[in-house]
Design a protein around this nucleic acid. Structure first.
Lengths: 198, 198
DNA sequence: ACCTGAACACCGTTCAAGT
DNA sequence: ACCTGAACACCGTTCAAGT
């Protein structure tokens, strides 16, 4: 919050931080480059230097989202001990918590239009996927998962986690239900439904 | 395509059909009320009679999406015979096919901002959820699913299906991978991973 | 290298008026 | 009941010009 004019790299960081907050509090429709510039006390054409267009800002936001989600999931896994189901549950809970807090950001991160798009974005999402892959590998080493096709297991786990997260983010599953959902997903994944009721 | 002026209910249907096509071919950013009006040969203020604002049009689109997805999944289930895994796979495949064809529409349908919103929208999505619930009930009656907590199983299945669909829609899973994903999900769900490799 | 200010085309929304 | 046309405020994007 210095009074000095925005120079160096300050504006980019400032715009991104403002955008994150606006996205969280008022949704993606309220996100305009001109408004962000106004908030930053800068002319409406200034953001252009740091984000080529609106889409570039959105990509950068999704990027930040993937990086932060990856960090939070890693932290959750690392503080969950050695037990595989416990680690899986910790990762799932971190994902759901993230989705509940930043629902609009999750929309952005998994939007279809970001298919094979910007390399920076796919790089960030691939780091998250790699973290899930590591978790799968650990589960297989611990004998908690079948030893075949880690790639397919990884995709399936990502699908389950993302599916639960979106259900929570869109309000179709209440936070209370989310815990039960996670528990079911974990037991399904780590031991199969056979362990649950057969 | 009559030459008569747009009256009666024709304009609403026309606008919706145009919007569906634009959404599919050019994405949600290309969807503007003014442009739709232009395509329909009508003044830019005319759509207002049928859609109060842009959000109302988007809600209607999501509504159409849920209704159509439900219909396609029902059809797939009904033509898949009596075997539960076969029905589950047919439903999953129909979902993925829908997502691959209408990726942007799927984004819209499961967007976070449609939380507890318009009653019409939640009604349409609940019909889809009910179809999944029926499938779960069939699976339990056939003894292919554990007899407890059908509600939780339903939510979990919706999460898995939606997760796979979004992975496909966003290009993070190739159509070829989607089949393997579905097969894994089906075997995980219908028999547990224990049946796969243990 | 970074930002400003004017300009352009486009948009959503509103409203008095037409048929 | 449904549509038109003008109007308003806002937006993304471009570009010559400033520091």
């Amino acid at each position: 919050m210095t009074d000095a004019p925005y120079h160096h790299g300050r504006l980019r960081v400032t715009l991104l931080a403002e955008a994150e907050q606006t996205l969280r509090e008022r949704g993606i429709d309220a996100l305009s480059l001109r408004d962000l510039a106004r908030q930053a006390g800068v002319s409406h054409a200034a953001p252009r230097r740091h984000f080529e267009d609106r889409k570039a800002l959105l990509d950068a936001l999704a990027n930040v989202g993937f990086t932060r989600l990856d960090r939070e999931i890693r932290a959750a896994i690392n503080s969950a001990g050695d037990d595989f189901p416990a680690r899986l549950q910790a990762a799932s809970t971190a994902f759901v918590r993230f989705a509940a807090r930043d629902a609009a950001l999750v929309d952005l991160m998994f939007a279809a239009k970001n298919a094979g798009q910007s390399p920076g974005l796919s790089e960030a999402s691939e780091r998250l996927f790699a973290t899930v892959g590591d978790l799968i590998a650990q589960g297989q080493q611990a004998g908690a998962l079948p030893p075949r096709s880690p790639e397919r297991l990884r995709l399936l786990l990502v699908a389950v986690l993302q599916g639960i997260a979106v259900l929570v983010a869109s309000g179709r599953a209440a936070p209370a239900q989310a815990d039960a959902l996670i528990a079911d997903a974990v037991s399904l994944f780590a031991r199969g439904p056979a362990a649950e009721a057969r």
